[in-house]
Design a protein around this nucleic acid. Structure first.
Length: 414
RNA sequence: GCGACUAUGGUGUAACGGUUAACAUAUAGGUUUGUGGUACCUGCGAUUCGGGUUCGAUUCCCGGUAGUCGCCCCA
């Protein structure tokens, strides 16, 4: 027989979540949810499917993105469908759909799984999860500040200190006004934003040379004035104790819908050079759906880089994988229902209980229960079933206690 | 899309161009059929695929595939 077996590897760029991986993911998602809700964000989600038009609508550059970097296919009804590569257009759709019944500002967060057809590398996969938080309909400085306080607290809530990460901020509105004062064309502006984006990757001389090529004159970046919005924002944050906020003109974010504050979070450990997350302020999120403009500020960060951050700074607790509390080990002569009946008594009191009715030797069962992190074992033979008195063994201390199910439940819960 | 590097049991590693492909760990079982973590014994299990060079390839060369890391991009 010459059978072609299937590979046990997952599809390129996606992950399997074995219990230990799932435990880490849950730890992070729970942490994200907790902080978001403490700051008043309500959780939302939507389908991973969207009509491709939703992503194409934002212009030529999005057209290319959809064609080259998304999972797009035609369904059986000849509709063009895209697996969501980001959540923002979906949120825009949801906001626009209920714009007349929502009281603004609206604070929403979500932990969507997103799909991008890209070459996988460190911190970047084809399926990943992302914390997404937005405030719609509030363009005050207070809103900007509170967003960054929230961002800092996401990290603090995982136990990170302010020296382990830095929040780099910039203001695209301010950058635009600088470029306007130089009478730059839209094309020159765009080129300058692209150049600034790679400022930290090239030499100062190369930057100056390229800038001169774009605008036809020497370019020196002015400092924002003390009463500028960006300086006010940073000063308030420093007063609030968020001291790891710095202005960095190289932060522009790739897309042009950002119109005000833009920011990115970086690990201060060089090992994780990629941004941990970022976001910014936009003017009109719901433009493609018509109606009055809705302003807002949004933020996103990926699960992969979050795990890398926590591991790098030793902030990931050990023993996250949940184990049952009790295992019941019936001997051969015990009927199947008998062990389960007793297990159910413990389960009714919310003690996580399993029954190991395999024909392995008792010694092996105990050994594995211990390896799995199960704390208690109860060996069930015909004596116990008749007397209704059981012996509970603490697998960590080897201490044994004998009593009725009710007594043992108390013992475990104490 | 472009480039660099890597590919041996489930996992982590060995092996001058010539061995029965080794070791650890994991796993299944035994010593021990009502009480474990130590110890000892046994079993299972691998050279990514296709070509080429060679008397002979895990080893050298070419290609595919996969992975890792960069570039591009990063919504």
């Amino acid at each position: 027989m010459n059978m072609e077996y299937l590979s046990t590897q997952p599809y390129k760029g996606v992950r399997d979540f074995y219990p230990e991986d799932m435990a880490i993911q849950r730890y992070i998602f729970d942490g994200w949810a907790k902080t978001a809700e403490r700051f008043g964000y309500a959780r939302v989600d939507a389908s991973i499917f969207e009509p491709s038009a939703l992503y194409r609508a934002k212009g030529q550059e999005n057209e290319e993105m959809v064609n080259e970097q998304t999972y797009t296919f035609t369904d059986r009804g000849d509709r063009e469908v895209t697996l969501r590569p980001e959540l923002t257009p979906t949120l825009a759709r949801m906001i626009a759909g209920k714009r007349h019944e929502l009281y603004f500002p609206v604070r929403w967060y979500s932990i969507p799984n997103l799909y991008r057809y890209e070459r996988p590398q460190r911190g970047r996969l084809r399926e990943f999860w992302q914390l997404n938080a937005d405030v719609f309909g509030d363009n005050t400085i207070a809103c900007d500040v509170d967003m960054l306080v929230y961002v800092a607290n996401i990290f603090k809530d995982f136990g990170a200190t302010l020296d382990t990460f830095v929040i780099r901020v910039n203001d695209r509105g301010w950058m635009n006004s600088v470029f306007d004062s130089l009478n730059l064309t839209d094309e020159q502006k765009r080129a300058m934003f692209l150049l600034l984006d790679k400022k930290n990757k090239i030499t100062a001389a190369a930057f100056d040379a390229e800038a001169k090529e774009i605008i036809g004159a020497d370019f020196t970046l002015p400092s924002p004035s003390a009463d500028s919005r960006i300086m006010q924002t940073v000063n308030i944050l420093h007063d609030l104790g968020i001291t790891n906020v710095v202005i960095d003109p190289a932060i522009v974010r790739g897309f042009n819908y950002y119109t005000g504050l833009v920011f990115e979070i970086y690990d201060t450990n060089e090992e994780n050079s990629r941004a941990l997350g970022g976001g910014g302020r936009y003017d009109n999120l719901t433009e493609m759906f018509g109606g009055d403009p809705i302003t807002g500020i949004g933020f996103g960060m990926g699960d992969v880089s979050m795990v890398n951050f926590l591991i790098t700074h030793q902030l990931l607790p050990e023993n996250l994988t949940p184990a049952p509390t009790l295992t019941i080990l019936p001997l051969e002569e015990i009927a199947a229902g008998e062990a389960i009946k007793i297990a159910n008594k413990f389960r009714a009191e919310y003690i996580a209980t399993v029954v190991d009715a395999t024909d392995r030797k008792l010694g092996k069962k105990l050994e594995h229960a211990c390896d799995d992190g199960i704390k208690f074992a109860l060996v069930l033979g015909s004596d116990e079933v008749t007397s209704q008195s059981y012996t509970l063994k603490n697998l960590f201390t080897r201490e044994q206690t004998t009593g009725t199910a009710e007594e043992l439940i108390k013992k475990i819960l104490s």
